[in-house]
């Protein structure tokens, strides 16, 4: 034990206070931008594209990659590496393929700030926009995963009971978002990307003194894992979700489509000029590589060094406080907390913006005849800010019931969203006969089937469930598209495309 725990606690608390002060300062500078709905959501054009790229990567990497997936690696061994490989490789390739098209379409529609709005414009359908904004509420479970991650850190590092840890976690998250807004989010997420990268690199560097073996450090790690259980070093794990070639391919399919998550696509919409996409995509790839592929190895090392943890999700916090001097451990713990906050703020912003922008602003004029556009805009921002607290309390309530695996719960939430929106977004680019009826049916089919498959154990593997639900969603959309696309529709699409 290298760490004196009361000194560690106070070091972490003081670093956090300085860090929050810095965010408050940035937030004050950005306040002028967040008075309108578009400014609240994207802070468009005010931030360097290199920083937006780092911010994209920091938002991508949440409690799932910093706590949850290392926890899976602790439990199941090297077959989990297929997941993090996809997080860098397949997701980056996906970003490179989709970024330009999504951005061009977004520009064509004028100022849009959210994915439901994008879909609403592409398919000329308010109903679709409202439907997808409701689907994004699945992100509440994603937020729950972040709360659980924070509570696990507080429990492992400071000894705060889990129940109080979740309350503290939600409180600091809400305060953090209240201090900033989107402008602060872009700047601070970029800074957090750097902090997270340093934390990730330190984890791997520390293997030289915790695992040993000099340059053969990974050979040493492999040997010691195999000594515990040979299944821990297999390519395809007998236990755990990575237990067949099909499942591993389905993981890659999931991670390829993951960049279509609304809170990530919003980042692309904040790029101002087309030539800015080049530095943005390159910086996103470089930062994503460092912060998504290294942390998981810490979970493997923790299995060798601390084989008797009560919760696999505690692998990384335990490894950090046992392997580093107090001051460095405190900085790394703050690095992990910032990894969680940088995703949570984007998730909250995505959910609340959708409620304000795509739900309230679309539906309110139906009930309040004669409301002026200015009034509507002001009320939408108010609703979005109120939704922030409601979503926080809702996620807190769900967090009290601790999940077995943080990672599996987070993956459930985003798979449910992706199963629904994958077909409408991708067919929306490539296919002239993609109609609004097809898109609405595809959203309902994909998400509902995913929930049915996983909740009733129709398909036990969560990755295969997502793959087959998406497949059904594509099939429904194509069949309905063929039946409902008529001459008038094709003309409309052509008119929009030119």
């Amino acid at each position: 034990m290298l760490v004196d725990s009361s000194f560690l606690q106070w070091t972490i608390i003081s670093i956090l206070i300085i860090y929050f002060g810095y965010i408050f300062w940035i937030g004050k500078r950005g306040k002028v931008h967040s008075q309108s709905m578009v400014g609240f959501a994207t802070a468009r054009g005010k931030v360097s594209p290199l920083l937006v790229g780092a911010s994209f990567a920091a938002t991508y990497s949440s409690a799932n990659l910093f706590i949850g997936v290392p926890g899976l690696a602790y439990e199941y061994g090297t077959s989990v590496l297929w997941y993090t490989l996809g997080c860098f490789g397949v997701s980056w390739v996906g970003l490179l393929i989709f970024a330009k098209m999504f951005w061009r379409y977004g520009k064509k529609f004028g100022k849009i700030s959210t994915v439901p709005e994008w879909l609403g414009r592409r398919y000329n359908s308010k109903a679709l926009q409202v439907l997808v904004s409701l689907l994004i509420l699945f992100n509440v479970y994603y937020i729950v995963g972040q709360n659980v991650g924070l509570a696990t850190i507080f429990e492992t590092v400071i000894g705060i009971p889990y129940f109080w840890g979740t309350i503290i976690g939600v409180t600091i998250t809400i305060v953090y978002i209240g201090l900033g807004g989107a402008f602060a989010q872009m700047i601070t997420d970029g800074v957090q990307g750097v902090l997270m990268a340093i934390t990730s690199i330190l984890i791997v560097v520390s293997f030289f003194w915790t695992i040993g073996g000099g340059f053969n450090v990974f050979g040493e790690l492999t040997d010691r894992l195999a000594a515990i259980d040979p299944d821990l070093i297999s390519f395809i794990g007998e236990n755990g979700p990575y237990n067949s070639v099909m499942a591993i391919l389905a993981v890659q399919f999931l991670l390829f489509s993951f960049i279509l998550m609304p809170h990530l696509l919003n980042k692309i919409l904040s790029i101002e000029k087309e030539e800015d996409l080049a530095p943005f995509t390159l910086s996103a790839g470089a930062v994503l590589f460092v912060i998504s592929t290294l942390m998981v190895l810490g979970g493997l090392a923790a299995r060798v060094l601390y084989p008797n943890l009560s919760s696999p999700d505690a692998a990384i916090p335990t490894y950090v406080i046992e392997s580093f001097p107090t001051i460095i451990a405190a900085f790394m713990i703050v690095g992990i907390i910032s990894a969680i906050l940088s995703s949570t703020d984007a998730l909250y912003l995505g959910v609340t913006t959708s409620i304000g922008n795509d739900f309230f602003r679309v539906l309110a004029p139906l009930f309040k005849k004669g409301i002026s556009p200015e009034q509507l805009e002001q009320q939408a921002v108010k609703v979005a800010k109120g939704a922030l607290v409601v979503v926080g309390l809702w996620s807190l309530y769900i967090s009290f019931d601790r999940p077995d695996s943080l990672s599996i719960m987070i993956q459930f939430s985003f798979s449910a969203i992706l199963s629904g929106i994958l077909a409408p977004i991708s067919l929306g680019y490539f296919w002239k006969k993609a109609t609004n009826y097809g898109a609405i049916a595809a959203v309902i089919t994909g998400s509902a089937l995913y929930v049915v498959f996983t909740q009733f154990n129709v398909i036990e593997n969560i990755y295969l469930a997502m793959f087959f639900a998406s497949l059904a969603s594509f099939a429904v959309m194509i069949v309905i598209g063929l039946f409902t696309a008529n001459e008038k529709h094709s003309e409309l699409v052509l008119k929009k495309a030119n």
């Binding site: 490989l85 980056w92 390739v93 995509t281 790839g285 590589f289």
Partner: peptide, 27 residues
């Protein structure tokens, strides 16, 4: 498996950069 992991990461770096150079890099 860990060595394969690093090799595959390198492979994705190269293929990602190839796509980037083709579609994004200023000519």
């Amino acid at each position: 498996m860990i060595l394969t992991y690093f090799l595959l990461i390198a492979f994705f770096w190269l293929s990602g950069l190839a796509i980037w150079a083709k579609f994004y890099k200023k000519s």
